[in-house]
Design a protein around this nucleic acid. Sequence first.
DNA 1: AATCCGGGGGG
DNA 2: CCCCCAGGATT
Length: 362
Amino acid sequence: MDWFSDSDDSTAGFATTLTEWYEHHKRDLPWRHTQNPYFIWLSEVILQQTRVVQGRPYYERFVAAYPSVQAMANADERDLLRLWQGLGYYSRARNMHKTAQYVAGDLAGRFPETFLDLLKLPGVGAYTAAAIASFAFQEKVAVVDGNVYRVLARVFGIEEDITTTGAKKTFSVLANQLIQMSDNPATYNQAIMEFGAIQCTPVSPDCLLCPLQQRCQAYLTGRQRMLPVKSKKTAVRERYFNYIVIRQGDRIALKERTQKDIWQHLYDFCLIETEEPLEAFRELPEGKTLNWVLQEGILKGLSDERTQVLSHQKIRARFWLVEVPEGRKVVLPDGLIFCKPSETERLPKPILVVDYLKSLRF
DNA sequence: AATCCGGGGGG
DNA sequence: CCCCCAGGATT
C-alpha cells in the first residue's frame, strides 16, 4: 500500500508539523539534555514498556549510582537489580549489565554507533537501537513504539492489527519513509513519540486542538477510538502463593528465585504454591525440613490475601509468619538463608514482598 | 507466530 | 473493571 498516493504535499508537512508542535509542547526531561549514548541507552532501556513518570526517578538514581558505562560494568548485578526494584521486567536489568560489560570490556567503553550494530546488544531491539542511533548519532532511522503505532494508525487510517508481523513491517516502512522528510531525525523521533504521549493519547485524544486534525483519517471518519487495531488480549492466569515467613530474632529466611518463572533472581520467602487457596496453617503440604520448622515454630500471624497483578498472571498471596525461638539451631529448607534487616533491605525483591515486609514493622 | 516477562496509573 | 505504557527474548 502506498500511503502517499493522493497527495504528496499533505504528507510532506507531517514531519514539519510534528516537529513544530514538539518545540512548543515538549517536556523538560533529563535524557533530552545529552547526546551521550550511555545515558541515552540507559534511559531507553528504563522506558521500555514504562511510562516516563514512572521511569524518570529510576533514571536519576541510576545516573547517580553509575555515572559511566564502566561504573555499571563493575557493579554487582544484585545491586543493579536492587536499584531496578519496582520497575518490573527484571531481565532488562540483567541484559543491561551484560551490555555494559560488553561495551566497557570489549569496546573500550565506546557504544556501537549504527542501528545494525546497536541491535546486537543484549536487551536492545529495533526500537531501542533506532532511538540510540538517532538521538546520539543522528542516524535517519525511525523509532516505532506504541506511540508511533497509534499516531500513524490514526493519521493514515491504517487498520492492520498491530500485533501481527505484517503490520509491524507496514508501520516500520511508513515511519522510515516519513523520517526521510525530516532534516533532524533525532527531533522528529522525539516529536512523534511525545505527540503520542501528550496529544494523540490512547483514550480521549485532544483532537480539537490537534495540528494534524484536518489530515487525520481517524478524526475525519470518527474512528479515533477504533485505532490502532489490537486484537490479542492477554490471558491472565491465577496463582496462589503461600509464603512461610520464617523469623528468628530479627532475622528472616529469604531465598533467591532461580527457576524459570517470574521474578527471576529476586528474593522472596519459603514458597509453597497451590492450585487452590489454603485456608488454614495445617493444610500446608509437608516437606521434611519445613515440617520440622512448622513443628518447632510458633505461628505469629497470618496475613490477609494480597494480590499482585502481572501482565499474564494474578498472584494471590498469603503470608504465614512463623517464629523460631532464639538460640535454637534451625536447619532451613532448600536454599533459604537467614538475613539480618540490613541484608534483607539490600537484596532485590518483588514489590509484593517489599510491601509485606513494610507491614511487618508495624 | 505466540507467549512470557512487572508494576503502575488513568478513565 | 479496562487499557497500555519510549519492548525484547524465548519458544
